[in-house]
Design a protein around this nucleic acid. Structure first.
Lengths: 113, 113
DNA sequence: ATCAAGCTTAGCCATATGGCTAAGTAATCA
DNA sequence: TGATTACTTAGCCATATGGCTAAGCTTGAT
């Protein structure tokens, strides 16, 4: 519905990177610290934290620093707009299909009698 | 599931731009020519066709040139991997929630007797 | 008081992205 | 044939993205 939706832009952009999707997959199983998340990624820490930052500014994760440790958690509700947009697309397309069906049906009805 | 999925990368990246989402929303209602699609976008034609190219290389639309006119159509099946990934995420997250519920239930059970 | 752990900041680099104009090509129309 | 339509290609530009290293800064442990 929204003509211009920067939140949606950022969410989709954040999801377009495989490193970031892996991070989300990990966080779906529960919170983790930056170091824990970084451990399985063959990448420098600064590069890695840039990905976390992007996920956080897209609203897909939250993080909080306690002492010298930052822990991250998924923000599952942030996925809703994305899924909603896709669902709406599907509905539009389905609507078109249904109307096409109706049209075909109508044509064949008209040819019968 | 796929550790590395360039198709998913490209689909999400294609969806991260508002111009491209508007194009998809239009195409969900039915096919259209490049000119028709371009008409409602305040942008030069070359810039606009670059968006179409990106959508097409992400597999989200197809196009075919007949004479001097190129017409574009949605490829609805290309949305499946995207929706599947999101659904899987949701499932992971839900699984975690359920296990947490079970844990809480177990704890309260243990306190009762 | 030192040292180590766990990030963070700063700066650099290469490539990608998203926009433009100007010029080119191919198909239809008059 | 000549003009017009409908893109297409080429080239330029600014900013964003994704990677790096080196140095800094808290916090926690010794």
């Amino acid at each position: 519905m929204a003509k211009l939706d920067p939140a949606l832009d950022m969410a989709f952009a954040a999801l377009s990177d495989p490193t970031r999707r892996r991070i989300l997959e990990r966080l779906a199983r529960g919170p983790a610290t930056v170091s824990e998340l970084h451990a399985v990624h063959d990448m420098s820490l600064p590069s890695f934290t840039a990905h976390l930052k992007k996920l956080e500014s897209a609203g897909l994760i939250t993080s909080k620093k306690e002492g010298r440790v930052r822990s991250c958690a998924l923000s599952p509700e942030a996925f809703a707009p994305v899924q909603d947009w896709l669902a709406e697309q599907r509905a539009l397309w389905q609507g078109r299909l249904d109307r096409f069906d109706a049209y075909v049906t109508q044509i064949s009805e008209e040819r019968k009698p």
